[in-house]
Design a protein around this nucleic acid. Structure first.
Lengths: 232, 232
DNA sequence: CAAGGAAGTTGAACACGTTCAACTTCTCGT
DNA sequence: ACGAGAAGTTGAACGTGTTCAACTTCCTTG
């Protein structure tokens, strides 16, 4: 594999030409209305050739995920580098994501429907998504570690993952959000981000600390089940 | 529409014959492997006729939902009538559901993938699912009201819905649960149900009460968005 | 009872995702 | 430069969900 930009192999160029074509047509007509024949034609290849590079039409969405994640990391950079307040960091990173995803919002539902199937490689919990997932969790780790908030020791380990889960539920809300320009989602983020921060602070209280231990123990147990601990 | 049982119209019988055939074949071969042609043949009708009664193959799953909900209400009855302890009521009702759904577990993922699409009538948040949804929320209201637990006034209104949401997240976990016989899900229920009950009790603490007001305000706001308050 | 419209029913036809055997082009060791 | 195997490419063909014009049965109204 060559490293000089612009000198990528022919096959790599064909590959991304197909993704480009797919994403273009998805934006224009939506996911279902875009046929594989149309994608192939737009990309200047045959249908069969498109299937040489991608196992299925759904598979093309993985390409979308990868790009979205990179775009998000880029658009979140300014906030991460300038803001210290944890609440504002959370809000900023989520808003950056909303910005990035805006062009795809009309048919995002179709994408997440596919992601919701547990056996699908597109599921955020699948092995195939592991790279994108850990990258995303690392982003949330940076949100935490770059902030001036004091994180209780007990939470250090699990909080990035929990924050990512919080983010995933925001994404789910966004998918269902009927308001134009995702106004409701923005409102929910603005409202819940301070709650999350306060929740972290509250874990110092004795009453809560007892519960926290249970929660952490449960999370660790669940992680074990999914990392091969359970019989599949 | 006739009310005497056993004297239903021909069309109603055809309708349920198609659902019977579909559910039978789904169980035997899975969702994707079952063709509409096979369903029609099994039900003793033509393909076109099946489409006279159901808009699509997905639509057949709505029939599955309706039955599952009825079955659950029935299987949850013993616990609801005999047990007073809130934790045990929650665990019992969830276990009853797990029992009910067991035959469909192998392909439940396929079902919930369809349910995850916001625009789909199969979404638990859709208008079409409203009857099933309110019935389910009512079930959780009974779980609460039949228990000996003291529910803070502030929570009376929203708690059944919140409990249903908790249940929905358990369902999501169940769909992803890789263990045989859903052992991990059972464990999570056994662990989280006491936490939920403790969480309800804790809302009396002054620190928490402040947060609780925020949460309730947010929930009410969200409900408004989805009940037509937002621009669609 | 007759008539005519509504409800129910049919299977062939269509469009789409996907597969595959055949073909072409590239790569590299000799 | 050559040959052989790998990699890339093709479009026709297949199976599936869905549609539709035509047909049949049922029900209502005069």
């Amino acid at each position: 594999m060559s490293l000089e930009p612009g000198a990528e192999s022919k096959s790599a160029r064909t590959r991304s030409a197909i993704i480009d074509a797919a994403l273009l047509l998805f934006r224009e007509r939506g996911y279902e209305a875009t046929t594989m024949r149309a994608i192939a034609t737009e990309a200047g290849v045959s249908v069969g050739n498109a299937y040489y590079y991608f196992d299925s039409k759904e598979q093309l969405i993985q390409g979308f995920y990868d790009r979205a994640q990179i775009d998000h990391a880029v658009s979140a950079r300014p906030v991460l580098d300038s803001e210290r307040d944890l609440t504002k960091r959370i809000v900023g990173v989520v808003e950056a994501w909303l910005e990035t995803m805006d062009p795809y919002r009309p048919f995002a539902g179709k994408f997440f429907k596919l992601a919701a199937e547990p056996t699908s490689p597109l599921s955020p919990f699948s092995a195939e998504s592991a790279p994108a997932r850990t990258a995303a969790i690392d982003l949330w780790r940076e949100v935490l570690e770059g902030s001036d908030a004091k994180i209780p020791k007990k939470l250090r380990n699990d909080l990035p993952e929990l924050l990512w889960l919080y983010f995933m539920s925001l994404v789910m809300f966004w998918v269902h959000d009927p308001t134009s320009d995702a106004a409701a989602t923005r409102r929910v983020v603005a409202r819940t981000a301070p709650m999350v921060v306060r929740l972290i602070g509250i874990t110092r209280l004795p009453v809560i600390r007892g519960m926290l231990d249970d929660v952490i123990a449960l999370i660790d147990e669940i992680r074990l089940v999914f990392s091969g601990g359970g019989d599949r």
